[in-house]
Simulated assay, not measured.
Amino acid sequence: MNIQTTTKFDGPGLDALSPVGRETVQDRIYRQLRIALIQARFDAGEIFLAGDVAQRMSVSSMPVREALARLVSERALEAMPNRRVRVPLLTLERARDIAQARTLIESELAARAISNLTNDDIERLEMLTAEYEDTSDAQDVATLNHAFHFHLYEAAGSSVFMPIVESLWMQAGPYVRAAAKLHKPLTDTAATLHHRGILEAIQAGDKARVASELTADISQSFAILERADPDFWNEGEGGAS
């Protein structure tokens, strides 16, 4: 079931973009958009117009179109008529698929990472968790959560799994954003509960618990969507407003 809400690309995620230099322009545009999608800064249904994005980033339209095409090929965005591109609409079936895929792959990566983590890595994860607990800013929360998970996953050293995880996070972004709107405050004791559990499991060298805590952490946002009123899905409440 698709949510039919569609809006012009003019949401708060646009504020995260900044002008880029002339070197490897397409790559820089792509990187900024990818990070913004990963950090759940766009609503489902938001429309990307190449001219609007180009103006905001102080570049020409061509590299923007190329960057958007890359994101469409990665299923983070979807092509629309008249050269428009949008963040995919939300469906409960897709939410479940993304949650399952993230759980399977990220749990494996986290378990693999344990033996490769240095003391400096663990200190970094502790610091990110402490900063997460001390902020109530939605953008900071998204940035710190992303940094925690990806610092952990990168320690696994898998050049095959990491691009898959990045793609899944881009696809999950609008669902995580929708869940955050349904569940307020954005930060509470549950927000970093499982990050603390992951750290404790790492210290104990307990791969099974790391996987379990990570699964619980990933499941939080999707569980909020599972509990959402049917009108959320039927009347477009999960789409862009």
Score class of each variant (00 low, 15 high):
residue 166 E to W: 13
residue 99 A to N: 04
residue 116 N to W: 01
residue 150 F to I: 11
residue 170 M to R: 11
residue 126 E to F: 10
residue 102 R to M: 15
residue 147 A to V: 08
residue 151 H to V: 03
residue 95 A to C: 15
residue 116 N to F: 04
residue 120 D to L: 13
residue 139 Q to D: 12
residue 107 S to Q: 10
residue 89 L to I: 08
residue 108 E to V: 05
residue 87 V to L: 11
residue 117 L to D: 08
residue 111 A to R: 09
residue 105 I to W: 00
residue 155 A to N: 05
residue 142 A to W: 06
residue 107 S to G: 15
residue 97 D to G: 02
residue 112 R to T: 01
residue 109 L to D: 02
residue 126 E to N: 11
residue 163 P to D: 12
residue 186 L to I: 12
residue 147 A to Q: 15
residue 155 A to E: 04
residue 114 I to K: 00
residue 164 I to N: 09
residue 170 M to P: 03
residue 152 L to A: 02
residue 180 A to N: 13
residue 113 A to R: 00
residue 128 L to C: 00
residue 91 T to H: 09
residue 131 E to K: 11
residue 103 T to Q: 12
residue 156 A to M: 00
residue 133 E to F: 05
residue 126 E to Y: 10
residue 117 L to A: 13
residue 141 V to M: 11
residue 180 A to D: 14
residue 140 D to T: 10
residue 113 A to Q: 01
residue 115 S to W: 08
residue 169 W to S: 13
residue 164 I to V: 15
residue 135 T to L: 05
residue 124 R to L: 13
residue 118 T to N: 01
residue 137 D to A: 11
residue 98 I to Y: 06
residue 179 A to Y: 03
residue 178 A to D: 10
residue 154 E to F: 07
residue 105 I to R: 00
residue 104 L to G: 06
residue 98 I to S: 10
residue 180 A to E: 14
residue 172 A to I: 09
residue 173 G to E: 01
residue 106 E to M: 15
residue 154 E to Q: 15
residue 175 Y to I: 07
residue 117 L to I: 08
residue 151 H to T: 05
residue 144 L to T: 10
residue 164 I to A: 14
residue 93 E to K: 12
residue 95 A to N: 07
residue 111 A to Y: 05
residue 92 L to F: 00
residue 124 R to V: 06
residue 140 D to Q: 15
residue 155 A to K: 00
residue 89 L to D: 09
residue 179 A to F: 02
residue 140 D to A: 10
residue 175 Y to S: 04
residue 173 G to Q: 06
residue 187 T to G: 10
residue 105 I to D: 03
residue 140 D to W: 04
residue 148 F to G: 05
residue 169 W to H: 14
residue 163 P to C: 13
residue 166 E to N: 11
residue 106 E to Y: 02
residue 132 Y to H: 07
residue 104 L to P: 03
residue 99 A to L: 05
residue 154 E to Y: 10
residue 141 V to F: 08
residue 149 H to K: 06
residue 178 A to Y: 07
residue 183 H to T: 03
residue 181 K to R: 15
residue 124 R to P: 03
residue 128 L to N: 00
residue 111 A to V: 04
residue 137 D to K: 10
residue 102 R to E: 15
residue 182 L to C: 09
residue 180 A to L: 15
residue 186 L to R: 11
residue 109 L to S: 07
residue 167 S to G: 06
residue 160 V to C: 09
residue 118 T to K: 01
residue 109 L to H: 07
residue 162 M to H: 11
residue 113 A to V: 01
residue 144 L to M: 12
residue 111 A to I: 04
residue 86 R to A: 15
residue 90 L to C: 13
residue 90 L to Q: 08
residue 160 V to T: 14
residue 102 R to W: 13
residue 174 P to M: 03
residue 108 E to K: 08
residue 135 T to F: 08
residue 167 S to I: 00
residue 142 A to K: 06
residue 104 L to D: 14
residue 107 S to C: 12
residue 116 N to H: 14
residue 105 I to L: 03
residue 136 S to M: 06
residue 139 Q to E: 15
residue 108 E to M: 10
residue 121 D to P: 02
residue 173 G to K: 02
residue 155 A to Y: 02
residue 105 I to F: 01
residue 163 P to F: 14
residue 156 A to Q: 00
residue 152 L to Y: 01
residue 106 E to T: 07
residue 155 A to P: 04
residue 153 Y to M: 03
residue 164 I to G: 05
residue 122 I to E: 07
residue 125 L to G: 05
residue 123 E to N: 14
residue 124 R to I: 07
residue 168 L to K: 05
residue 96 R to S: 13
residue 132 Y to Q: 06
residue 112 R to W: 00
residue 168 L to G: 04
residue 187 T to R: 15
residue 98 I to R: 09
residue 187 T to V: 14
residue 146 H to M: 12
